[in-house]
Each structure stands twice: as C-alpha cells, then as structure tokens.
Design a protein around this nucleic acid. Structure first.
Ligand SMILES: [Mn+2]
Ligand SMILES: [Mn+2]
Ligand SMILES: [Zn+2]
Ligand SMILES: [Zn+2]
Lengths: 153, 153
DNA sequence: TTCTTGGATAAGAATAATTCTTAATAACAT
DNA sequence: ATGTTATTAAGAATTATTCTTATCCAAGAA
C-alpha cells in the first residue's frame, strides 16, 4: 500500500492525466505525459533534477526548465505536491494524503510519516495572538535505520 | 520578556563574547565583535544579508562573506543558531531555548512559538522502523495578525 | 490538405543565496 | 617591535531555480 512496485503506468493513470489536462484547458504534450509517468512511478521524493536525469534516457533533448515548469503545473493542478523541506532543494511528492516527513541527517533520505493524532491536537492558545494557522509543517530529523547500522560498526 | 528593547550591548555581553573567543582559541576581531552586537540587538530572525546591510552603515567595507562565515562560527560555538526554514533563506536566531516557529505566508514574518506539550508527546510507534528521531522541526504556517487585518479590508 | 495561431518547449542567460579562492591584513604572543 | 598565523575583502564560482526569446508543434479553420 505504501510501497507499490515500479510498474508501468496503467490505463487508469493515462486517462487521469488526459482528463486533468483537458479540464484545465492545457495541452497534453509528450513532455507532460513522460514527466507524469516518471513522477508516478517514483516511490521516493524526487527532485526536479532526479526526474530530468531519468527522463533524459528516453528524451535526450528535454530541458530541465521544462521539468521545473511541468512539476509546478502539476502542483497547481493538484496532481503532485511541491515539498519545501528545510535545508534542502525542493522535492516533489505524489502522496497527496496528509502526512509529514522523516529526514535522515546523514543520507538525506525522506520518508513519509503519518501522525493523525498530532494533526488534530489543539494548538497552544498563545498562537491566536500571533496569527491564524492554516497548516502544520513537521519534519522529524535523525538517522535512518540504514545509517544507524552503518554508524554502529 | 519576549521583546526586549533594542538597547546597546552591556559589558556582560562584551565579556561573554571575549571569553567565548578565548575559550575557542579564535581571535576576537573587530568584525566578529560588531556582528555579535548586531545579532544580539536584533529581536527578530535576521538573515545574513539583514545583518550585513545594517552593519555596512558602521563598517562600509565589511564583506557579506565575512558575515556568513562569522554567523556560521557563532552557530558552531553555540552563540546563535542557524535556522533552516522551509522555502526560505537561512535565518539566524539568538533564542537558544527550545521553540518552534510561526511563519506568515504573506509577509514572511517569523515568530517564536513555545509548545512544550508537543515537544514531550510520544512519537507514533511506526517511526522506530524508519529510524531514530533526534529533533523535531515544526513550522506553523498561516497569516499573521497584521496580514489578516489587511486582507479583511 | 494546407494554413493559422497560440500554447509549449529548448537553449541558454539571468538571478539569488551561499561558498570558495587568494592575496593582503591585522590580532596576539613573543 | 616583530613574526606567525588566523582572518578578512574582493570577487569568482557554485547551486538551484526562473526568465527570455526564438522556434516548434498540435489542433482547429479554411
Ligand atoms: Mn511524502
Ligand atoms: Mn526563534
Ligand atoms: Zn540515512
Ligand atoms: Zn504577515
């Protein structure tokens, strides 16, 4: 459920992107389709450069700017989400469910963290004097299990 | 308590930086002293450029690189803390007490938030399979009171 | 089918934040 | 005072991202 295999996109997904572009009134270009595929088959949190690097194997002339532009479009259309993580380049996330992230300070790996109890906890009262909170951005930092093992030797 | 006035540094502070440099075995240069003053009298979360801009009035030849370098040194020495906020340039914080931040998505103002109850809440169990958490980084995003008023008109 | 047109792209320039290189300077011990 | 060595100023370099512009291309019109 959280870790689907890197399978090919199915027809459902193709229909989805086709419909979304039509509804948004934008063209479903070869680039948009391929970037969509690349994004949907990535199971981690890829950067624009990650996507560009992979895509270049199939589309040698695709420009990094096109990847940035298209990912921004996908973010606006609600297909994916741009993640602004502290001290990091921007990453992209296809997991649209509410969640937070664990970030390994050694290898920089980013893992999804679900913590609904926290999401629904009441904020401290003093916040109301500061402003109105619209979203909570939580990052848990530490060492991932792989890095822990490595450092234990 | 949270908003001390922009008073001059007192002798106590000067002694502090002098002692810290001595203990760390680094020279107390004119630049380091002035950047320390600038940092300690700022009540917000200044960027390296903020500090540089202010400082240039008194030290016209100070290089931005010196400000970055010195702030990094202060971070290492534990005098100040470099903040890595999502989607922001790096800011610096002299508030060494454990706390989090409210960030206004309109004007980018950064305010301190204390939430000890959250700091001591147990993490979800599933985290242990991902890695070992060493710190929690929480940002509350929304609109500050000033921006709320402005948008209400 | 050919033409028209506007949105989309590729390429490279531009920008912004930060760090690096290097030669000159200045703090501090002697 | 002098010498040693850390530190600085200046500007180049780097990194991530966005902008500019000429060209391309897909879809509809003729
Ligand atoms: Mn995620
Ligand atoms: Mn703070
Ligand atoms: Zn790791
Ligand atoms: Zn505001």
């Amino acid at each position: 459920m959280m870790n689907m295999t890197n399978a090919e996109l199915n027809d459902q997904d193709l229909d989805q992107i086709r419909r979304i572009c039509e509804e948004a009134g934008i063209k479903l270009t070869h680039q948009r389709l391929e970037i969509f595929k690349e994004l949907m088959t990535a199971r981690d949190h890829p950067s624009a450069e990650d996507i560009h690097r992979h895509l270049q194997k199939r589309m040698p002339t695709v420009a990094i700017d096109t990847v940035y532009r298209t990912l921004a479009t996908f973010d606006e259309l609600g297909i994916a989400r741009r993640l602004h993580l502290a001290n990091n380049r921007n990453l992209f996330d296809t997991n649209l469910a509410p969640h937070h992230h664990f970030i390994c300070d050694a290898c920089r790996k980013v893992e999804d963290v679900y913590w609904p109890d926290f999401d629904s906890t009441a904020l401290p009262e003093e916040i109301s004097a500061i402003g109105q909170v619209r979203s909570r951005h939580l990052e848990l930092h530490g060492l991932c299990t792989a890095c822990l093992e490595q450092s234990g030797e």
